[in-house]
Design a protein around this nucleic acid. Structure first.
Lengths: 184, 184
DNA sequence: CAATAATTTGACCAACTGGTCAAAGGCAGG
DNA sequence: CCTGCCTTTGACCAGTTGGTCAAATTATTG
């Protein structure tokens, strides 16, 4: 699985070969296919495992907490995932960019429902004047965009920052942006 | 070129085939190779053409304008590009995610220099108290992330928004975020 | 130890891939 | 009409790819 993650997250499904995955896993190709039925099976297993963890940080958001701190906490959790699991982020990004042929249903089903729920919570906060009025879905998009960018575009970020660690500064900037947007 | 853009932006270089490009262009494969020396030549030509336009909006940023309006204008131009040229954005995203094997030099050279220049301008604005103090590079990253997200993750955005046009609302949200962050 | 089951491998295959090439069309100017 | 040049094509090729299979190897167990 780790080998598959390394290969698929860099080249996408169609750009990866079983030989690459087998090499990365230290197995021969037939031996790899002894454990997984097909190339597709490896990729699908990876995506399934990823989706389990991917939505988790969003579920942890509490409607009864402090609005700004809850949203900030969510953003920080996402940023931590970009820092510590960049390959998972890139695997997901590759799948989405290529049209999400295998997880379109999840996006339009489970994910959408979850975002709808959270959007209601955020709208409630805004109606109570606890945060500034804001489009909840675009707020969520912006948290995704800002955090995943550091994993997905890692090469570009490091090309510009040189020796500076991207995650020194990213957290503070993210917090400043969200506080500026949300604090009433 | 248009056919190549359509195919490569969806599947990446390694995931695309000459037959796909030829089909999309309405040519036979040998005929396609009559106009382009190789698969690589098509892809490289596309990337070169893309890079020409990609940095342009950033260059248009004026040091002598109103800081907040200049940055907002830049963000809007990027958002317009996501709306009207999503395939170009995805082609670029694919290349970066896969480690930028062909444009790493441009990122570490031309792009980095340009960002360094703009960073000086932004730092000057902050020193004069015309915008709130902010890390200029992370600010630029966040503009890239927020705008490109709507092109690169188009499928996900539309899955969540349903029939709502993503670009109704994206512009206003982007403006609110940047004003909240920058307005002194 | 023997027998059974789980694992690993080399050889192989059909389909696909990027790319070549000689021959055939098509079309301008004379 | 002919000639010469640009364009298009079908046939083809060598290398790669996902996947199979029987045989060999290595645990595991009674």
């Amino acid at each position: 699985m780790d080998a598959g993650l390394a290969v698929f997250s860099q080249f996408g499904f169609r750009g990866s070969t079983l030989d690459q995955v087998a090499d990365a896993a230290g197995l021969s190709k037939p031996n790899l296919l002894y454990y997984f039925r097909s190339k597709d099976a490896i990729y699908t297993a990876l995506l399934a495992k990823l989706l389990e963890n991917w939505l988790e940080p969003l579920r942890e958001l509490r409607a009864d907490g402090d609005p700004v701190e809850e949203l900030l906490g969510y953003a920080k959790r996402k940023l931590d995932m970009s820092q510590h699991y960049p390959r998972e982020s890139r695997l997901f990004a590759n799948e989405i960019i290529q049209g999400a042929p295998r997880i379109g249903d999840v996006l339009r089903g489970e994910l959408r429902e979850l975002v709808d729920e959270i959007s209601d919570v955020i709208n409630g906060w805004a109606a109570d004047g606890r945060i500034k009025p804001v489009d909840p879905r675009h707020l969520i998009f912006s948290i995704w965009a800002l955090t995943q960018h550091y994993a997905d575009f890692d090469v570009q970020v490091r090309a510009i920052l040189g020796d500076v660690d991207p995650f020194d500064g990213a957290g503070a900037h993210l917090e400043a942006m969200l506080r500026g947007l949300l604090t009433p």
